[in-house]
Amino acid sequence: MDILTTEFFQRALIGGVLIGITAPLLGLFLVLRRLAMIGDTLAHVSIAGVALGFVTGVYPIAVGLVFALAASFAIEKLRKAYKTYAELSIAIIMSGGVALASLLFSLGKGFSVNVTSYLFGSIYTLGNTDLVWIAAVTVVILASVGLQFKELFMMTFDEDAAAVNGLPARYFNLMMSVLTALVISVSIKIVGALLVSALLTIPAACSLIVARSFKQSVMLVVAIAEAAVIGGLLLAGVWNLAPGATVVLLLIAILILLLAVKNGRRV
């Protein structure tokens, strides 16, 4: 249990708690707009940015963010080009990102970059710079979503009706892209690129099972994610497991439990 009092574990806990608010919150909007796969795609492209950061000696998370932003715009462009096969754009951008990442990592061999730490996360290596970055992203996301909550609801529920009401769809789509890229770039260090989409989508999947109102589901996604993040980090710390993976598996356990309870009630 000594690990729980160490500084690196406490930093991990703070970072995890902050991500546990923002990732599922944005994820809820993405899932409801049928963009669940976008998180995964941006995360993979973000890895290429991280690799470039290492090769060039620039703060990797910042370069990852730039790449994620570029990818989200590229997806929008490709979606228009392949209107009826919109998921094509996601597959193209995702594989392109992974290819670029592995190319850049191979270039940076001399830098002894630990690739797996970005694929599966390395929450114990969070530094103070990372925490400041995560806190800043949390503030930006909470402010943006909090101030425009009802408009985001309208945009998500019925984009056409929102447009007829005069809400600027382009602005909201752009804002969502930027916020998603932000949250992904900081989540990568915590759960890793391969697991990021779990934090975005599984809490939303849980809330769809039980929530009746939109307000309820917003509170639920955050509560579920926090339970999984805090519980997962403690379990991983005590039993010396991979923290990112433990959090994700805990999320899936919660989902299965909720499904079982719901089906049980119906029978």
């Binding site: 609801f153 809400l167 769809l208 009746r212 939109f214 307000k215 589901s217």
Partner: peptide, 14 residues
Amino acid sequence: PATVREVVLSGLYS
């Protein structure tokens, strides 16, 4: 996940 009330109120958001 949206209640009837939430949907009807959203008609006001402009």
